[in-house]
Write a protein that binds this DNA or RNA. Structure first.
Lengths: 143, 143
DNA sequence: TCCCTAAATTGTATTTATTACAAACATGGT
DNA sequence: ACCATGTTTGTAATAAATACAATTTAGGGA
C-alpha cells in the first residue's frame, strides 16, 4: 500500500484531482497483472469503495487513457482490457484460454527499432511497435 | 466477379454449404480492404442480398473464423473487424483517424521467426507473431 | 481555515453490438 | 426429386458502453 504516494504523484503530474476512486482504480490496475476489463475492475474496486458507480470506472479509465497513465489492450476474442504498465512491452496471448501476459524484451525492441529505422514504410510514419505473440501457455498456474 | 468460383472452392474445402449469403459475405470481405465491421458488412452485403438478416452476418463471420477463412482484427479503439486475408501479415494503424491497413513484410517475418527460434520464452510456446505498427498515415487519400 | 468554482462522481436512462433461440428454408448427397 | 442436415431469419434478450443532469467533492485563493 506504500504505492499510494506514487499514485498521487502520477495523478498530480497528469493534472488530475486526487479522488479515492481514482487512487483505488489505479491501485487495483497496478496490483492486478491480468489486464482486467472494466467490469472486473468494478468488482475489485467496489471492495474498497462500496458505493462506486460503474460509470466512474469508465470515466476514470477514459481519463487515464487520455493522460497516458493507462493503455487499452484488446485481443481478438473479447472486450476491452486495461493495463497500467506504460513502459514499453508486448503481450503473450493464448486464444484458447483467453489468457494474456506482459512480455518485456529490450533486445527485441532494439532489433525492431533498428529495422524500422532502416526500412521506411511508404506513406506511414511508425511511432510505436506492438507485438502480440500468439501461442500456448505451458500450464503454469493461470494468472 | 470471376472470384466467385474461387470462393466456392474455399467454402467447399472448408466443408461448408454454398449459400448466396456466404458467397456475398466472402466476396465483400475480399473486395473491401478496410477491415470492415460486421455492421459495415451488413450494409454492403445487403445491396446484393436485400432480405439479409444481421444475424446471418454474425453467424457467417463466426463460421468463417472457425474454419480459418477469415481473421478477426481488433484495435485498441473500436469494435471487432474482419479480414479475409489469411496470408500472414501485420497491420498499420493510426489511432487518430482510426484507419487500418495491411502490411506485408517477408524480411521482417524472417527476422522475427529467426529471433524466436533462438530465443525461447519461459512457459510459452509461440505459434504466431502479429505486429501492430502504430503511427500516422501521410494523408494518402484515405483507403 | 473556509469558500467557491471547476472538476468528478453518481444513477438513471439509452444506445449499440452481439448472442440466443425457435421456426422456416435451402443445400447437396442419395 | 427427396430428405436430412445445415443455414437463415426474425424477434427477443443480453451485455457493454455512453449520455446526461443532478449532486458531491477537491483543492486553490481569500
Amino acid at each position: 500500500m506504500k504505492i499510494v504516494p506514487e499514485i498521487i504523484q502520477k495523478l498530480t503530474e497528469a493534472g488530475l484531482k486526487i479522488t479515492p476512486q481514482r487512487v483505488a482504480v489505479m491501485q487495483t490496475l497496478m496490483k492486478l497483472k491480468s489486464h482486467p476489463t472494466a467490469e472486473e475492475l468494478y468488482a475489485e474496486v467496489s471492495k474498497t469503495i462500496p458505493g462506486l458507480s460503474p460509470t466512474t470506472i469508465y470515466n476514470t479509465l477514459d481519463t487515464f487513457v487520455d493522460r497516458g497513465l493507462v493503455k487499452r489492450v484488446k485481443t481478438d476474442l473479447d472486450r476491452m482490457r486495461y493495463d497500467a504498465i506504460t513502459e514499453h512491452h508486448h503481450h503473450l496471448y493464448c486464444a484458447i484460454s483467453d489468457r494474456m501476459e506482459d512480455y518485456f524484451d529490450p533486445e527485441l525492441d532494439r532489433i525492431l527499432s533498428d529495422y524500422f529505422t532502416r526500412k521506411k514504410i511508404n506513406g506511414f510514419n511508425v511511432t510505436d511497435i506492438r507485438l502480440q505473440l500468439m501461442g500456448d501457455f505451458e500450464n503454469k498456474a493461470k494468472q
